[in-house]
Amino acid sequence: MTVIKESIYEPLTEQTAIELANRLNLFQEGASLTCNEIGDGNLNLVFHIQDTNNKGIIIKQALPYAKVVGESWPLTLLRNKIENEALRVHGQFVPSLVPEVYYTDEELAVTVMEDLSYLQIARRGLIEGKDYPLLSQHIGTYLANTLFFTSDYGMNQQNKKRLAKEFNNPELCKITEDLVFTDPFFNHETNNFEEGLKSFVEELWADEHLKLEVAKLKQKFLTAGEALVHGDLHTGSIFASSTETKVIDPEFAFYGPFGFDIGQFIANLLLNALSLEQDEREKLFNHVEITWNVFSTTFTSLWKTESVEIFSKTNGYLDYVLDQIIEDTIGFAGCELVRRTIGLAHVADLDEISSDDIRIHAKRNALKLGKALITNRKQIRSIEQFVTYIRGVLQHD
């Protein structure tokens, strides 16, 4: 395929996105194309291009700054390469659960990929009350395969070290370090919360035991290069239907701890649960259980049949690894609950609750639950105990 490249980076418009699609010959010659910029995230432009037969593609372009703040917050365009490579690597292990990539251009920071517009962003669907019966099964499968096969258990250790160098992602990791593990636990200017939460937030900031436990989790995030993690696996990074699931947007990918992706996903299920009445939450708790059970069962099977680590046959080693993963998962989930409530980037699950009283109440519960998970994660040894513990924390809300 011959492509005429622009000489310098320039943000695409709807018209230049169509021109790029034509140069790539992704539609029939002379096809009438329409284009809409549909990006609702903080970091990128996203264009949906269709012909008159409803054949479509997605063109995603990284911006050199964070949309949520503006040009005063510059960002590297190399994150586009990170995202492409992560989709390629993860696609080797779970091709049905990630979008197909058609073309990439590092200079333009562009990725052209499969059109998933026939699916719905899982966060929006959950807010609307959809169940997505296969969501947790699919995500558990995604997590087990992508984490196992990019770890020292699923690939040659030397190859893993070489792969880890390709996913050196300091700028986006710094965003996570600050916005997930640091800023929400201090009186920082990036924090954003309602006046009705102020007393709860100030109490959280004054809790030295909580800060100690967050510091330990941050240290794990900074130092544990266990597997290639997605790095931003929330329900807004997943397209879903009743039969399909596709994980998108791995631009935060890096070599990090096993439990980070699992914890972020589970926390976002819990954030949706917290927006519901008590009797409506069980379907989300069920998703939490299924996610972990599918992950642990699949990871165990891969460990027994595919591990390249000789110590994998040592009695007790697998149990030790899974115990550490669930402990980290619970702690990371707690951090995500706190930061999505009072940090810079919120979630629509809570922010769109129209009643001020109900919204503040739900957010107080998110802070209470987040703090409890961070500080008591070592006492929870199974997913059943985890969900029972959550019910206990929330039973008097």
Score class of each variant (00 low, 15 high):
Glu189Val: 14
Gly316Gln: 05
Glu213Ser: 10
Gly196Val: 01
Ala345Val: 10
Glu19Asp: 14
Pro184Ser: 01
Lys130Ala: 08
Leu344Gly: 13
Phe285Asn: 07
Tyr118Leu: 04
Asn168Thr: 09
Asn44Gly: 11
Arg391Ala: 00
Ala348Cys: 08
Lys378Gln: 09
Trp205Val: 03
Val294Cys: 07
Tyr142Asn: 10
Leu43Asp: 00
Phe167His: 04
Ala240Asn: 11
Gly41His: 06
Val214Phe: 03
Arg88Tyr: 10
Val229Asp: 02
Val393Ile: 15
Gln120Ser: 13
Phe181Trp: 03
Gln50Glu: 13
Glu202Pro: 10
Lys55Cys: 02
Ser96Arg: 14
Lys246Asp: 01
Glu282Ile: 07
Asp152Glu: 07
Glu244Gly: 09
Ser241Glu: 00
Asp207Tyr: 05
Lys130Val: 04
Ala144Gly: 11
Leu318Lys: 11
Glu203Ile: 06
Gly91Ile: 04
Thr223Gln: 12
Asp152Ser: 13
Phe93Trp: 07
Pro64His: 06
Gln50Ala: 02
Ser355Tyr: 04
Ile353Trp: 12
Val214Gln: 06
Arg381Lys: 15
Lys211Gly: 08
Asp40Pro: 12
Asn145Phe: 10
Phe27Pro: 14
Phe285Asp: 03
Ile59Phe: 04
Gln120Ile: 02
Gln264Asn: 15
Arg381Asp: 00
Cys173Phe: 02
Glu213Thr: 10
His361Gln: 13
Ser72His: 07
Val201Leu: 10
Ser96Met: 10
His138Asp: 12
Ile57His: 08
Gly392His: 10
Gly316Asn: 01
Asn286Pro: 02
His287Arg: 14
Glu208Gly: 01
His287Asn: 06
Ala164Leu: 03
Lys81Pro: 00
Thr104Tyr: 11
Ala224Gly: 01
Phe311Tyr: 08
Trp292Glu: 00
Lys211Arg: 14
Asn145His: 15
Trp73Lys: 13
Glu213Asn: 13
Leu43Thr: 14
Gln15Asp: 05
Leu97Ser: 05
Lys165Met: 06
Trp303Leu: 02
Lys174Phe: 12
His188Thr: 00
Arg364Trp: 01
Thr314Ala: 11
Phe285Leu: 10
Leu134Lys: 15
Glu289Lys: 15
Ala345Pro: 14
Thr245His: 08
Thr305Glu: 07
Arg359Gln: 10
Gln324Trp: 01
Thr13Gln: 11
Leu116Trp: 07
Asp261Val: 03
Ala21Lys: 08
Lys60Val: 00
Lys313Asp: 09
Glu194Thr: 06
Leu172Val: 05
Asp51Trp: 09
Ile325Gln: 01
Ser32Val: 06
Thr329Ala: 04
Leu284Ser: 10
Thr146Lys: 12
Gly231Pro: 08
Ala366Ile: 02
Lys283Ala: 01
Asp328Ser: 13
Asn286Thr: 15
Ala345Asp: 05
Ala362Asp: 05
Arg123Gly: 05
Arg339Asn: 04
Phe332Lys: 07
Ala224Asn: 13
His48Ile: 00
Leu197Ala: 02
Asn84Arg: 09
Thr245Asn: 13
Leu270Ala: 06
Thr300Leu: 07
Lys5Tyr: 07
Asp183Met: 03
Asp323Pro: 02
Glu203Arg: 15
Tyr389Phe: 15
Phe311Gly: 05
Ala144Tyr: 06
Gly91Trp: 08
Leu344Arg: 14
Gln15Thr: 13
Leu87Tyr: 15
Asn159Cys: 07
Thr146Val: 15
His234Asn: 09
Ser72Ile: 14
Tyr103Cys: 11
Glu106Ala: 15
Ile266Gln: 12
